[in-house]
Design a protein around this nucleic acid. Structure first.
Lengths: 206, 206
DNA sequence: CGATGACTTGAACGCCATCAATCGCTGTGG
DNA sequence: CCACAGCGATTGATGGCGTTCAAGTCATCG
């Protein structure tokens, strides 16, 4: 969507590459740019002073992130794997937005979609069991990156845990349990997962 | 803000009263109206099939809610106590928004503020201890409804628990603990709380 | 090969939930 | 005015889910 917007209006954009593990922007830094993932994967997280981490979202191909209204970012964004992103200066976007109501409306739509994701996640974090959380995660990723039926997860177990408000051990145990139940199977490295019974997972997720 | 917008533009609005415990709108109902609390308090929640409840937000005087982009609400909203609200038809707002870019930008600002609240809550639900959650809640409410230093909480312990992802017993225990430590005191009914040491709570919240 | 890092698996602990009893306030009727 | 029911809140005892701690396994890479 961002690229479409960018191509429509005269906004200067650039492709930018980030190496695995590198920071794209930091929490409380000025929010000067808006990003769209072209290839790769990004995690947005917040930290508590003692190191506890909460990942707010994973950004995969075509996802837009860094879209904030305040002047500062509320998350730290890092490339999970080598990533290329389309980068747009906020000011450019805002300049166009002043003239183009459709642009503002697009921004509103994107922000609202974002809000919807996050509100769904609040229910998961506040009230779901570890089983339900991992099942929900698998279904989410199944929908978002199931290329030819097999999910190649870019993120580690710890990333998943910090996204779901669990520990990596608990995530691992749940995955093993689903494996035992025949709901999924692994391919080589344990980051390649094939979901065999989405219905089973959906039932668990309630 | 909504009233200001309403008064500026020619939008038909109405004041509407809701009795304690009554539903204002239901999850997945068409989102026809947008609301602003004039007096009272509202809770927005989601339910799981087995009755587990997660409250996404409390709406107090001057707060705007029901602001969705999709056609359907993602929460159920109920009056916690007798409440009067300013009600605006979504269509009217959208009609004006088509002509008035400033209006769209205001909507975007409100949505983004909303997003910021929710993102903060995700960290709380995913990674904070029960102590930290209750301390954070007290500080939040202290800031939002401390009229003359004493907080008159409209919501029950269960509401607080469902907002914080805890049980009402745990909330009660934490409040008692803070009372013992001298961080707060109760007035008559246990819904009137005076925060004596915000700094103590802030330290706990980390 | 040995080292390193990611993941799995097992055992024990602890925080919070669950279950249950009691307190205290409010309103209602005798 | 008091008895009592009813609800919300507190408090205590117990239990369980997920965490923590600790090996052990597996894949990758020097």
């Amino acid at each position: 969507m961002l690229r479409k917007l960018v191509s429509q209006a005269k906004i200067s954009s650039a492709e930018c590459g980030y190496r695995k593990g590198n920071e794209i922007f930091g929490q409380a830094e000025p929010a000067d740019y808006i990003y769209q993932v072209i290839e790769g994967a990004v995690r947005s997280h917040k930290l508590l002073s003692d190191g506890r981490r909460q990942i707010g979202a994973f950004h995969l191909a075509r996802d837009i992130f860094g879209l904030k209204n305040g002047d500062f970012h509320r998350f730290t964004a890092e490339a999970i794997i080598d990533t290329t992103a389309c980068v747009v200066k906020r000011q450019s976007l805002e300049r166009v937005a002043r003239a183009d109501p459709a642009m503002v409306r697009s921004l509103l739509t994107m922000t609202t979609d974002n809000l919807q994701q996050v509100e769904k996640h609040i229910l998961l974090l506040g009230r779901k069991t570890s089983q339900e959380r991992v099942a929900a995660f698998l279904l989410e990723m199944h929908g978002r990156l199931a290329a030819a039926d097999v999910m190649a997860l870019p993120m580690s177990r710890r990333d998943i845990a910090d996204y779901l408000g669990l520990t990596l051990e608990t995530v691992s145990r749940m995955l093993s349990e689903f494996h035992r139940k025949g709901y999924l199977k692994f391919l080589g490295t344990h980051r390649q997962i094939v979901v065999l019974k989405p219905a089973g997972l959906a039932e668990i997720d309630s």
